[in-house]
C-alpha cells in the first residue's frame, strides 16, 4: 500500500458548522423623486399656513393667508390688470432673451470655431461677464429712454454674456474625433457645422437656456422695480409701498408660476432635442 502523500492541512469540512447568512448591506444612497409626495407636502404647507393665518399667529400685515393671496389674484384677473402686467413682463423678457441669446449663440459659435474670434472675444467677454448688468440700466436709460427698449436691453445684455460662454464651451467640447471623421469623408464645412457641431453642442446650449432664463427673470424684476409703471416687478413694488401684502405675495406667486412655465418648456425642449441621449 503506498504511503499517503502529505498534503496541505485542509480547513475543517464545512458540514457540521453553523451556517450564517450573508446580509444585504448595500442599501441607501439611491434617492428617487416620487410623484405624489410633493403634492401632499405642498397641500400640507398650504394648510398649515392657512391655519396659522386664521388663528392669528401670522399677522395679515406681514404675511397674508393663502386664501387672501388667491382672492387678490382673482381680483387682478377680473379687473384685467393681471393680464396687462403679465403681458408687459412677458413681452420684455421674451424680446430681451431672444435678442441676447441669439446674439450670444452667434458669437459663442464664432468663438468656438474661429481662432480670431476666440482670441479677440475671450478676453473681452471675460472682462464684461462679471459686471452685474443691472448696473448698466441707468446708462441704458440715458441711451434708450425710460421706455421698453432700455428694459429689453438690460435683459438682453444679462443673457448675452453667459450665453456666449456656455455656447463657446459647448462648441469647444464637441468631440474632435467626430469632426475629423466628417472631414475624412469630405463633408463640407457648412454641413459639418449643421450636422455635427450644432447637435454636438446642443446639450450645452440647452443648459445655457436654463441659466440665462433665470438671469432674465431676475433682471426683468429688477428693471421693472427701478423704472416701470406696469409689469410684475412694478406691481410688487407698488403693492409693497401701499402695504398690500396680499397683492405683493400674489405677484411673487406669479413669478414662481412664470419660472415654472419656462422650466417646463425647457424640459420639453430638452427631452425632444436630446432624445438620442
Amino acid at each position: 500500500m503506498p504511503e499517503p502523500v502529505p498534503t496541505r492541512p485542509q480547513a475543517a469540512p464545512p458540514e457540521g458548522e453553523a451556517r450564517q447568512r450573508v446580509l444585504f448591506r448595500a442599501g441607501g444612497f439611491e434617492p428617487s423623486a416620487g410623484r405624489i409626495a410633493p403634492w401632499i407636502a405642498f397641500a400640507f404647507i398650504l394648510a398649515g399656513w392657512q391655519a396659522a393665518s386664521s388663528s392669528g399667529i401670522l399677522p395679515a400685515l406681514f404675511m397674508p393667508s393663502p386664501a387672501a393671496v388667491a382672492a387678490a389674484l382673482w381680483n387682478q384677473v377680473t379687473s384685467g390688470t393681471l393680464l396687462m402686467n403679465i403681458g408687459y413682463s412677458v413681452e420684455r423678457i421674451v424680446w430681451g432673451w431672444l435678442i441676447g441669446s441669439s446674439l450670444g449663440l452667434l458669437l459663442g459659435f464664432a468663438m468656438g470655431m474661429f481662432s480670431l474670434a476666440r482670441s479677440v472675444g475671450l478676453p473681452i467677454v471675460s472682462a464684461l461677464f462679471p459686471v452685474p448688468k443691472i448696473a448698466l440700466l441707468p446708462l441704458l436709460i440715458l441711451w434708450f429712454g425710460i421706455g421698453e427698449p432700455s428694459k429689453i436691453a438690460v435683459i438682453a445684455l444679462g443673457v448675452f454674456f453667459p450665453y456666449i460662454i456656455s455656447t463657446y464651451t459647448a462648441v469647444d467640447g464637441v468631440p474632435r474625433n467626430l469632426i475629423r471623421m466628417a472631414l475624412s469623408f469630405g463633408v463640407p464645412t457648412g454641413a459639418i457645422v449643421r450636422k455635427i457641431v450644432l447637435p454636438g453642442a446642443m446639450p450645452g446650449i440647452l443648459a445655457g437656456f436654463r441659466i440665462t432664463t433665470s438671469i432674465a427673470l431676475i433682471l426683468l424684476v429688477a428693471a421693472e422695480m427701478i423704472g416701470a409703471r406696469y409689469g410684475i416687478g412694478a406691481f410688487i413694488l407698488a403693492a409693497g409701498n401701499l402695504m398690500q401684502t396680499d397683492q405683493l405675495v400674489a405677484g411673487v406667486a406669479l413669478l414662481s408660476i412664470l419660472g415654472l412655465i419656462i422650466a417646463f418648456i425647457l424640459g420639453y425642449l430638452e427631452r425632444w432635442l436630446l432624445r438620442w441621449r
Binding site: N177, M181, S184
Partner: peptide, 18 residues
C-alpha cells in the same frame, strides 16, 4: 467611388444623435 481614401475608426466615431 465617392471617397477614395476612407477610414474606419478605433472608437467608431458615430454620431450619437443619428
Amino acid at each position: 467611388c465617392l471617397n477614395p481614401l476612407t477610414y474606419v475608426f478605433q472608437d467608431f466615431a458615430l454620431l450619437p444623435w443619428r
